[in-house]
Design a protein around this nucleic acid. Structure first.
Lengths: 150, 150
DNA sequence: ACCTATAGTGGGTCTGCACCCACTATTTTT
DNA sequence: AAAAATAGTGGGTGCAGACCCACTATAGGT
């Protein structure tokens, strides 16, 4: 018996398996981001802008579930790197409109590739069909998670 | 369009879905543990002892991948609560043998029930057959994760 | 104009996790 | 018997995440 086997009592818990595999994925992606001086929220912001177009900063917070104060810092760094553009909304000068720049789009593409790479590593043990099924199941779980309160 | 929809660029990444759903599960289980003054490692230790029998403290560290220094603190708290018994190994008096006590076994059963509860919440959107398939897939991914270096 | 509400910023806290080093007690090696 | 290795402990560090409050600037309601 391998003295490094994990306890079956734990591995029979789906939440535990999700948590561990999720952490593995998260850490790997975080590493790739860290190599570029970024963290997960930076990528999330870029993705939100790419998928849904320009946002007021506040709307980004609502969409991603981030504290406005934390978002300000993330936005700051992305702006410093030239990956997003920040402009005052002339209709409501309290608002700051955030948009992707060309370099930002490029960066996101790069990060997306890195993430796909991590997926490939993580799911190396699955056939293509299994990956498809896993993805569908995870989407369902994700929907459930989003719908139930904390 | 729901202004709270997550970016598809993110939800198409399996590692991201694993990470989010895993975090949801983790947090919920952590909450239940916190209500009893415990954290995840406490449960992991109890599970390892229940599944594999008594361990030297060092072997628990190896099995669970915890720093020996951190393990010492976890062990300390479990011993304080009367959930494990700590005895010096007479054959090698450097070693401390850790074993589950009756109350420890009870506590683990309780925690396992709580975890199953969380699973039920998280996977509420899946049919029984889907849950079975998800579990099998997660086990495979878990095996892969364990086999590849960090 | 006045009062209230909202957008964003800057500064800080607290928590959990992971890690690391120095130290004591004990055992093994030579 | 001395030296090197091992088990466990205590006391730290650094980081990331989530949160919170005070503040400025602007807008909207009356």
């Amino acid at each position: 018996m391998d003295p490094r086997d994990p306890p079956p009592t734990l591995t029979s818990i789906d939440s535990y398996l999700l948590s561990l595999t999720g952490k593995a994925g998260r850490n790997r992606i975080a590493d790739r981001l860290a190599a570029r001086g970024l963290r997960l929220w930076h990528m999330a912001v870029l993705a939100a802008l790419a998928d849904f177009g320009p946002h007021a900063q506040r709307d980004l917070c609502a969409r991603l579930g981030v504290d406005p104060s934390d978002m300000a810092k993330v936005i700051d760094q992305l702006a410093d790197g030239g990956h997003i553009a920040r402009t005052r909304d002339d209709a409501d000068r309290r608002r700051v409109l955030i948009d992707l720049t060309g370099p930002g789009r490029e960066l996101l593409a790069e990060l997306t590739r890195a993430a796909a790479d991590v997926d490939r590593q993580l799911l190396a043990g699955l056939t293509a069909a299994e990956r498809t099924r896993l993805h569908a199941l995870l989407l369902k779980v994700f929907t459930t998670v989003r719908s139930i309160p904390d």
